[in-house]
Amino acid sequence: MSSNNRITNAFLNAKKLELSKESKYILFSDCHRGDNSFADDFSHNRKIFHHALSQYLQKDFTYIELGDGDELWENKFVNIFNANKDVFLLLKKFHEKNRLHLIWGNHDMDYKNPKKVKKNLNYYYDVTDGKEKELMINISFSEAIKLEQKNGRSIFLLHGHQADWFNYTFWKLSRFLVQILWRPLQLVGIKDPTSPAQNFKGHIKVESRLEEWIKKNNNQMIITGHTHRPRFPAPNELPHFNDGSCVHPRCITGLEIENNQITLIKWHVITNENGTMQIKRTVLETSKNISEYID
């Protein structure tokens, strides 16, 4: 199956959510939550991510995670949970308010299987009192989501590895190579060169395939992750956005949708004049009206 067909199938079968002036969405992807080892790229941003998500919870945003939330290629889920319990309990609060929607990517493609989702995310074992407790009962993952207006126009959300044939079709082989070869090397500081996030030519090809699909489908606005490279096009360019990742060296990036506006933001740590450290939200690209891209 071609990348064009894979993207089209995801589009036709996408989960639908409402998009209106009252909608408030925050989009992050590529957290790659790990086990807090030296190979865990998320560990240095965990506190930033938790603080940012806490702020969005207080402000009644709905959280959509665009894939690769859990680093299942390198870790057992129990180790991921134990290293990120505070994050999962925060996700639980979004879920209880029906404001959590999850998309699977290539690194958590196991979540295509509802049995795997149920096994990992319905309950957790609390080591503090030795009891099994509810986590996110009946949570589900989608391949894609459409944020749809009443007029039928929409924003298409997916991870983006549908345009990366090796990481979609042969993801189990990719996982094997990461587990056997690249994880041990990553422990000593060597990055996986097969990842599109590390391979410039790789993510250019992925982006090109996505943009070819956009051209063939009436300039459908699309938001992806996967390449870890933030994208925020001008209204006269192809409407291909990317929320970046949560494993940048010193920040996390994401996209906010509020009041029919879309904004590229980052959360990062700054040092104040008195020496105290603060987690701050910074706008990377000035808000644009969604109507400039989908009307």
Rank of each mutant, 00 (worst) to 15 (best):
F156Q: 03
L177M: 13
D41L: 14
L177K: 07
L102R: 14
W73C: 03
K15R: 08
I145R: 04
L17P: 02
Y168M: 04
H50K: 14
L147K: 02
L185Q: 01
F232T: 11
S2W: 06
P196K: 14
Q261M: 10
P235F: 12
D70H: 07
K216T: 09
P249C: 11
T286S: 12
A197C: 08
S154N: 12
N259L: 14
L187T: 08
R183Y: 11
V283I: 13
R281Q: 09
W104R: 00
T62V: 02
E71Q: 11
I294M: 08
P239T: 04
S54I: 00
K205C: 03
H101N: 12
S140G: 04
Y56A: 01
K85P: 01
P193W: 13
E212V: 12
I222A: 03
H159A: 07
L102A: 07
A163M: 07
D110G: 05
H95D: 06
Y168H: 15
K133S: 03
D68A: 03
H44S: 11
N219D: 06
L264C: 04
H95L: 05
L264D: 02
L187K: 15
L17Q: 05
I7W: 01
K118L: 15
N75R: 12
A10Q: 05
H226C: 07
R209C: 14
N242D: 12
I190D: 12
I26P: 04
I204A: 01
H51V: 06
D108M: 09
F232S: 05
D126A: 04
I103E: 05
R250W: 10
K288D: 11
H161M: 09
L210P: 09
R33T: 08
I279F: 00
F61A: 02
P196Q: 12
I80N: 13
I257D: 00
I204F: 06
H228S: 15
E148W: 01
Y168E: 14
K172M: 10
E212Q: 14
K216N: 13
I145S: 02
V178P: 01
L102G: 01
R183W: 11
N217T: 01
Y63T: 02
D126Y: 10
F170E: 15
R250H: 09
S2P: 10
K97C: 02
E285T: 08
N82T: 15
K201V: 07
I139P: 11
K24W: 10
M1W: 11
E273L: 14
K76M: 08
K266A: 12
W213T: 03
H50D: 06
F49W: 13
F232Q: 09
E22T: 05
A10L: 05
L177P: 00
T8E: 14
T263W: 02
Q261L: 13
L66A: 08
G160C: 15
Q261V: 02
I265W: 08
I214T: 08
I270M: 03
L57T: 04
Y124P: 07
A197E: 05
K146M: 13
N13I: 06
I214M: 07
P114G: 13
Y293P: 04
S291C: 07
V87L: 13
Q58A: 13
H228M: 14
K118R: 14
N138K: 13
S287M: 07
S291G: 12
K16L: 04
K172V: 01
R281L: 05
S3Y: 14
T224F: 13
A197V: 10
E256F: 02
N84S: 02
A39C: 11
Y25I: 00
L19A: 04
T271H: 07
Q186W: 04
V269E: 10
N36R: 10
R183P: 00
R99E: 13
